[in-house]
Structures are given as C-alpha cells and as structure tokens.
Amino acid sequence: MKRLFLHPAAVLLAALLAWQIVALVKTTPLFPGPLDVAGALWDDGPRLIREIGHTLRRAVAGFALAALTMIPLGLAMGRIRALGFVGEPLVAMLATLPPPATVPVVMLFAGTGDLAKILVIAYAAAIPLVINAAEAARNLHPMLGLVGRSLGLTRLETLRLIALPSALPMLAVAARMAASAALLVSITSEMLLSTNGIGNYLQREQENFRLDAGLAGIVLISVVGLILNRLIAASERRWLGWHYQSRTAETQA
C-alpha cells in the first residue's frame, strides 16, 4: 500500500490534481490548470508539431556540424602534442563563453536565419565534444599506441583505427551533453532571433498572455527531451555494450 502511495506516477497525479484545484479556485486565465494546458496542446497540436520540427531540424544540423568537425580536431589535439599544447588552453578559454553570448556576434555575420541558429547550436555542442575527444585521446592506454606502431600504422591510421574506437565511451558522454545542449540552444536561439520554431511559439504566445499555450509548449519540449534521452541511452547500450560489459567484469573481479 505504502509502495503504491509513493509511486512516482501517483505523486505526479496528486501534483496535477492539486494544480487543477488551485486553478479552479483562482479562475483566471493567468493561472491555467492542467486541463487548460491539455486543451491548448490539443488546439495547437498541428502547429506545435510543425514548430518543433523546425527546432529539431536545426538542432540536428548543428549537432552534426559540431560532431563532424570537433571529434577529429579533439582526437588530433590529444595525439599531436604541439597541437594540444596551444589548442587546449584555447578551448578552455572559449568554453567559458556561454553560447547565448555569441548570438549578437553571429547575428551580425549570419543574419537571423537558419544558418545563424545552426552556428550557435554547433558552437554549444562543440565544447563538450572537443574537450572529451582530446581528453580521451590523450589518456589512451600506452600499450595501444605501441600496438599501432608495431603494426606499422601511419599517424592518420592510428587516429582512425585506435584513438577513435577507444575514445568512444568518453565521446558517448560528450554526445549526450552535446545533444541536450543542442536542443536547449536551438530553442533559446529561436527566442532571441525569432522567426519560427518552438522557442518562437513560446515567446509569442506568452507575450499574448496565452499562458496555457506557453505551458503546452514547455510540456512538448519536456516530452521531446525525454524521448531524445531515451534514444541516446538505447543507442549507447547497443553500440557500447562491450565497454560496459568489460567494466562490470572489472568491478566484479
């Protein structure tokens, strides 16, 4: 009985119920209850789907751009000492600059269209990717480097065949951070450089005092974020199962 009472779903339901009761008592559109939010979600459904589509498209583009350029750069920084020596403090310095602070400058070069937003997203996603790629490549087990050398691999082959696969677990951690950063910054950039997307929807509806619609947008973002997290976790298990298996074996031994 106690178990059932404290079940997360039960608590969530109780919270929703309490919220609905307060909303019924307050009876003002400035305090919408869960039913109002559900109504707004239903009414604006097709529009919300379209807007989140724009948001996700740009998030994916920015993430892909960052992954394609920053993982090779990070690995190279970890393996080639001179590059890492100057590159790492440079990256550490850039990492302290929050992505939204770059919006004004990007706006000047790339306008307020898709390109500007994708660049800001790519910048946000790039930081964890490049830092973790460099860190993983630098901490490569010395034995693996020797194996590469005794096989007569060139520098590029060592990077591709040894450094990249052994960096994958740390890259997975970075990818998770980068993916959530991409989604967050995608929405933020839409609120700041408004044309379309779910961030723009949020901004506009809340300025029109449609708070129920604003909350509906936030609910949708939360659901999409949850699904995204699940997908990433599932693909990690699928492709990095070997790593976690060997780790559990280690702790059990």
């Binding site: 997360p8 967050l184 609120m191 936030i218 997290n229």
Partner: peptide
C-alpha cells in the same frame, strides 16, 4: 528522479516570460 527527467529538458529561456 521523475521530476528531474521532466524538468531537465526545459531550457531556461522557455520559462523566463512566464
């Protein structure tokens, strides 16, 4: 954990106007 899973994907910008 449930609350964290729900709130974590919400960007700071989204809650500001409200």
């Amino acid at each position: 954990d449930t609350v964290a899973a729900i709130l974590q994907p919400v960007p700071p910008a989204a809650v500001v106007p409200m």
